[in-house]
Simulated scan of single mutants.
Amino acid sequence: MRETSGVHVRPESPFNFTRIRNESILSTDQQIEKLKEYKATLINSAVTGKIKVPEVDSGC
Rank of each mutant, 00 (worst) to 15 (best):
M1F: 12
M1V: 13
M1Q: 12
R2M: 11
R2G: 09
R2I: 15
R2V: 12
T4E: 15
T4N: 15
G6V: 12
G6T: 13
G6A: 12
V7A: 14
H8F: 08
H8P: 00
V9Y: 05
V9S: 03
E12Q: 07
E12A: 12
E12V: 12
S13N: 00
F15R: 14
F15A: 12
N16L: 14
N16D: 11
N16M: 13
N16F: 08
N16S: 12
F17V: 15
F17Y: 13
T18A: 15
T18P: 00
T18Y: 14
I20K: 08
I20Y: 05
R21C: 07
N22E: 06
I25W: 05
I25R: 07
T28R: 08
T28E: 07
Q30G: 04
Q31M: 14
Q31S: 14
I32G: 04
I32M: 11
K34T: 02
K34L: 06
L35Y: 14
L35K: 15
L35P: 00
K36S: 11
K36G: 07
E37C: 01
Y38F: 06
K39C: 03
K39V: 05
K39L: 07
A40K: 08
A40D: 09
A40N: 09
T41L: 08
L42S: 02
I43G: 00
N44K: 08
N44V: 01
N44R: 08
N44Q: 09
A46G: 06
V47L: 15
V47F: 11
G49D: 09
G49H: 10
K50T: 01
K50W: 00
K50F: 01
I51N: 10
I51Q: 11
K52C: 00
K52F: 01
V53F: 04
V53N: 03
V53G: 03
P54S: 05
E55K: 03
E55T: 13
E55V: 12
E55P: 01
V56T: 14
S58F: 07
G59H: 03
C60P: 04
C60Q: 15
C60N: 14
